[in-house]
Nucleic acid binder design. Structure first.
Lengths: 171, 171
DNA sequence: TTCATATAGTTCTAAAATCGAACTGTCAAT
DNA sequence: ATTGACAGTTCGATTTTAGAACTATATGAA
């Protein structure tokens, strides 16, 4: 699959994955939320190759997740900060962290605790329904095609290009 | 970086990324939540190569995200279903979908709508604080080292192995 | 002046991952 | 006896990533 194609798919999950769904990008975003802003900062915090880091940052800027802002002239230097679109990834990050906290901790316990300044307490993130504010369970959610869904004809056409071709028999 | 090392890192985000943080795995999990259970089902829905699909499924089973269950004898056939650990990824999936719905839709609108059976309404997922039940904003959250955090000495040792080495001057 | 350091990249080759297609094996139905 | 469904495995070619060095600009020290 050409991964650029993901962004064209009629699926919000696929499109999101097309933008942030690889290991280095997710780790770069972690650093962003931890207030890292500069090339060298990302590089030394992550141990990513400079080549890939440059490429990933470029892509995140192109996608509007990060903004590249000059912080000095001569030599020109820029730093990378989260846009609102980038900040909106916070629930994604928290959901990933919380799953790790729940299922991947060793005997030592959580590496990081989160304090909510509003209430002053250590918390876990909980995902609720915007309408009734009850926690969401997969069993209680049904999906329906939305206005951006593909018609049957479109699905058929799309299948032709991605579906496994029939394999021929042995001679 | 050897990606197996991610699971050892003192960071719940890194550990989670080590398990589910690649494009195909995330798409496979989407299919799981859409009730796909069998090899051919995943393959034709995603267009993933059979080779990679087999590998990813094995890894998800090894990690306890999926369970491989026989559904017929002779020939032996199995299907892959989400464990509780896998079901717990629901907030991650919903967060990814919601970001896509917010920032990646085209003029046609959302591909999929979600109905909450509890209240009967179409909803968006909202992430709140478990303690005060207010929506979480990145600015209002502070992180503290938890019991599983690395000591300063451990951080230093870890840096030696991942940090960029000093580069020598040109001759 | 010359050297060293800081920062933000780019370039290059080798190694690893992925793709694409074919192949294996079991069983049921025709 | 052949075809099709299903769940993989194998293999060569292509694409990505890793790892290291190199470029460029400027500051401050020897």
């Amino acid at each position: 699959m050409k991964w650029d194609a993901l962004e064209e798919e009629p699926c919000s999950l696929a499109r999101t994955i097309g933008v942030i769904g690889d290991r280095w990008t997710l780790l770069i975003l972690r650093e962003c939320f931890l207030r890292t802003r500069r090339f060298e900062g990302f590089q030394s915090a992550l141990g990513i190759t400079r080549h890939l880091l440059a490429e990933r940052l470029k892509k995140l800027v192109r996608q509007g997740v990060l903004r590249r802002i000059p912080y000095q002239e001569s030599p020109k230097r820029h730093e990378y900060i989260l846009t609102q679109k980038g900040l909106d990834l916070y629930p994604v990050m928290m959901a990933l962290v919380h799953w790790g906290d729940t299922h991947m901790v060793d005997e030592r316990g959580r590496p990081l605790l989160h304090e909510h300044r509003n209430c002053g307490k250590m918390f876990d993130p909980v995902m609720i329904c915007s309408e009734c504010r009850e926690p969401l369970l997969p069993k209680e959610v049904h999906t329906h095609p939305g206005p951006g869904a593909r018609s049957a004809a479109e699905r058929l056409a799309a299948q032709k290009s991605t579906k496994a071709k029939p394999r021929r028999r042995a001679a």
